[in-house]
Design a protein around this nucleic acid. Structure first.
Lengths: 340, 340
DNA sequence: CTACGTCGGTTTAACGTAAAACTACGCCGC
DNA sequence: GCGGCGTAGTTTTACGTTAAACCGACGTAG
């Protein structure tokens, strides 16, 4: 009554187990039409389902791709409440599945214990989102699996990378705000890590300022964390700045918080302040006013990640570094200024 | 140079593989302190990592729990862009991990193909979110695994269930709105399935109305889908209703859309319309005005799901049906009426 | 008519781990 | 001084699958 195995099928179809294996795996050259039919019939009637553990054991592969995302710092919990990760993972999963791979999702914390447990499963490859600890990269190198880092500026031939040109994207966003007549543009962002995504965005912000002949004022950079709460808190900081009428937030989540914070302070958007986000998360349409933002097609990026890994595993060559394009989507949180 | 196995450890520690297996798995009675030390030393220096495929093959278990969520209808893609599922999964994962289980996430579509592939992996148990197809339940019964259905009213001894008392929750929400002076309360919701979550919420809504002596008007039920877009679309329907000043939405996602739609129609919230949601998703704080809603602690519910499954797998008995409590969280989208 | 190839298989062995049965040795009680 | 028992292991076998090597029969080229 237990699950049928290849041997059961072999018995039922009166062939050897090996022939069953061959047929099931499409190595049909080794069997006559008639045998194939008999085997497939038995497969159906006995409800045979392959045992991946056994397959994985002999093939030393698993068709599983591990996806690693950071935990929230306080709780030991996936960052899926951050829609950024949720949307990305949704994209990754659909592309992996379309290519016949499975996804195993794991958070990693300070210790890399979760990475170890993942590795017990013979993963074929890994995709890493938003983790920037050197210790993790060391462990990843030890595992020596095909690994795709998303939004990382680590330059190491052992990893594939997928990201956006953050400098150029931030440059475009800032230039867009300046073009709308805002000469005082604040930057609201998370912590700025050396050679991290945000640092490159800061560079783009500065370049746009310089190009427009606007002096860079460090006080206009409000740096906290990539959370709604920080955005809400930053509203007070923004209001305290002189001659500042616009804010470029390096994440929609921050922008959403900033909108809420500004509302609480009785400010009107976009009349009093223009706010721009980054990511084009689904929440950017839900906030009020709907957020003008930089679209980096997170879902598409996730799908691309899945496709890249599939290509790598199929020995099709994949570029070591890939970039997705970025576009500004105009909604209601930015006003034309000066033309009043 | 390949990954070290139990045999390598055995060789290095000069014992038999079985002793290594015993020590690694904590069956220490069978080994002397000194041997244990030697083995653990070899484990460390050789960087031994267990091979789960092999373990799973012999034990016919995997320590993996499959989590099943529906695809979006149009694309073949996980519903993680719906924060409801994202938050739930985050909770499930953390509880499973805390109990030493792994999570394998899979969407399922119309065909149950994805369930089949999941089952190839020797899952120890399954958690099913938001899928209501009879055909799926049939396949689940065939698999005969411990299975936890979340938010399902299927009454079948082969499944465990976790949910909220939807009737009572909707009753409370509606009563709350009535208590605020709104005698015209609309219900904005997704499709109403027989014996589904929403139907029970409709019942609660009706009971509150009846209790307050307010006649039930079917026109006040606006039924579409559980999406932001439907909420936005429903705004026009709401405005067209006479004597209606409040809307109870059966999901925060719908409520968020409704707010956006009402804004577009120039309505003010909560002055012109009071809007109430359900779920207390993270987005409910992000919309404007912040949403008064029914909290069903989705994260906690997910964690409870993970703990329930762990308990079942550890042969601790778990109740066949569990319910989480619900609370109204008051924010800014509901006004007191009549007291003006 | 013999050597070779091809078709349609089968046999053997191996992947890493663990349950179950077995062993060797020392000790203790009577 | 022999049976029984506990300690610290070992040996054997099996889990389901597949790679690699093998095999017999038949056709056919030289």
């Amino acid at each position: 009554m237990a699950r049928a195995t290849i041997k059961d099928i072999a018995l039922a179809a009166n062939v050897s187990p090996m022939t069953v294996s061959n047929v099931i795996n499409g190595r049909r050259a080794k069997a006559s039409e008639e045998t194939i039919e008999r085997i497939m019939g038995a497969v159906k009637t006995l409800g045979y389902r392959p045992n991946m553990s056994a397959r994985s054991l002999v093939s030393n592969a698993s068709r599983m791709v591990g996806v690693i995302i950071p935990f929230t710092e306080n709780q030991n919990q996936l960052l899926l409440d951050n829609p950024f990760y949720a949307e990305m993972i949704s994209g990754i999963e659909s592309a992996l599945r379309a290519n016949g791979y499975y996804m195993m999702l794991s958070g990693v914390g300070e210790s890399n214990a979760q990475l170890d447990t993942l590795s017990h499963w013979n993963m074929d490859a890994l995709i890493v989102l938003g983790v920037y600890r050197e210790a993790l990269y060391d462990r990843l190198r030890e595992l020596a699996l095909p690994t795709l880092l998303i939004d990382s500026y680590i330059d190491d031939p052992s990893f594939y990378r997928l990201g956006v040109d953050d400098e150029a994207a931030a440059y475009r966003a800032t230039k867009y705000l300046i073009g709308k007549g805002h000469s005082g543009v604040a930057l609201v962002t998370g912590v700025i890590r050396t050679d991290g995504v945000i640092e490159h965005r800061v560079d783009g912000y500065k370049r746009a300022l310089a190009e427009a002949g606007i002096g860079f004022d460090p006080a206009r950079i409000l740096s906290g964390s990539v959370t709604f709460d920080w955005g809400a808190e930053a509203a007070a900081g923004l209001v305290a700045l002189r001659d500042t009428t616009a804010a470029f937030c390096t994440a929609d989540l921050i922008a959403a918080g900033l909108l809420a914070g500004l509302h609480r302070l009785g400010k009107r958007i976009p009349e009093d302040y223009s706010v721009m986000g980054f990511d084009n998360l689904s929440i950017s349409r839900m906030v009020y006013p709907a957020l003008t933002t930089v679209d980096q097609s997170i879902l598409g990026k996730g799908q691309l990640a899945g496709r890249l890994i599939s290509a790598i595993l199929n020995k099709t060559d994949a570029p070591r570094d890939s970039f997705v394009d970025v576009a500004i989507v105009e909604r209601d949180s930015v006003s034309q200024r000066g033309a009043r």
